[in-house]
């Protein structure tokens, strides 16, 4: 085995053996060929727990090469513990360069967010997916949901949205908001806030979704039509924040609420830490200049 393919951890490059990576790549190719369709794959036991990104890790392991630059985020931040842990894993088993800058990364593995900085052609965004089936909580049976997808039987999905409007006056789904991909398959975009949904539409980057425990891979190829489900008279809308980020002043970005004390004091700051820090750095340069 060559030096390139053997990592310092004593495992094959990017942990998985080549046969397994080939199997995952075949699933990925099929997923790209049928946008939004959940391709079953033989998910492996990984050295991190199911539900903690094993699907994303396997997809990343299958697509990453020695020249790639990896960014890992969780909740939009590079520094959350699980992101740190996954980044460390790939540094160890693949010795790839890592970054926190969205623009520099070739592969970005994410949990629950799409970076604010627009993605470009050639980048791959890998989502960690807990429950890939958008119909699961309407119909628990896998055999039935697969039939519903096959027959494009999506009426039930709208029943749920109808109920939201009837009871709350609005669609009360705020994350993992279902989308229709390329006019065919209804897809769960993983638990990203619906704020991020529009970023999937016609994105120049390749978007791959890996669900390890549920053993499914799906994809949105670059420049694919991605529509959030809605009604003509209750169109899809994203969250709006009343104030800008308290640190960098950004508007039209997703914000985290930070509790400052026990008397209701709070502030709103960017969920995407890289974007926030870059903006702060730019602002400092400007004042210095």
């Amino acid at each position: 085995m060559s030096a390139v393919t053997m990592s310092e951890a004593g495992t094959n490059f990017a942990y998985l053996d080549e046969e397994t990576k080939r199997m995952i790549r075949r699933a990925i190719l099929k997923a790209i060929a049928i946008p939004g369709y959940q391709v079953p794959f033989a998910s492996r036991e990984m050295p991190m727990p199911y539900g903690w990104g094993t699907g994303g890790v396997q997809v990343t392991a299958a697509v990453i090469g020695p020249d790639d630059v990896l960014k890992v985020i969780d909740q939009g931040a590079d520094d959350t513990t699980n992101a740190v842990s996954i980044r460390a894993f790939f540094r160890k088993v693949a010795r790839v360069a890592v970054t926190t800058h969205t623009a520099e990364a070739t592969v970005i593995q994410t949990r629950h967010r799409i970076p604010e900085h627009p993605l470009i052609e050639g980048q791959i965004l890998v989502y960690q997916v807990p429950i890939p089936e958008p119909l699961r909580f309407l119909e628990p049976r896998e055999t039935e949901t697969r039939t519903m997808h096959a027959l494009e039987e999506y009426g039930l999905m709208h029943v749920k949205l109808y109920e939201d409007i009837a009871h709350h006056g609005r669609i009360a789904t705020s994350y993992a908001y279902p989308v229709k991909v390329a006019g065919r398959y209804v897809m769960d975009p993983s638990p990203i806030p619906k704020f991020d949904n529009p970023k999937m539409h016609l994105s120049p980057a390749l978007q791959l979704f890996g669900a390890g425990r549920e053993k499914r891979i799906y994809a949105i190829p670059p420049h694919t039509d991605v529509r959030s489900l809605d009604f003509e008279d209750h169109p899809f809308e994203i969250q709006r924040f009343d104030e800008p980020c308290a640190l960098c002043g950004a508007r039209n970005v997703y914000l985290d609420e930070v509790i400052l004390d026990d008397r209701g004091g709070r502030m709103f700051v960017c969920s995407d830490t890289d974007n926030c820090e870059s903006r702060q750095a730019d602002a400092q340069k400007e004042t210095a200049a």
């Binding site: 629950h112 994350y175 638990p191 806030p193 619906k194 425990r213 985290d256 969920s271």
Partner: peptide, 21 residues
Amino acid sequence: VQATGFVEHLKLPHYVDFQAE
């Protein structure tokens, strides 16, 4: 192994989704 992973993943941060809710 699947069950424990998924049950215990609830302790991972869910700030973003919770913010949305």
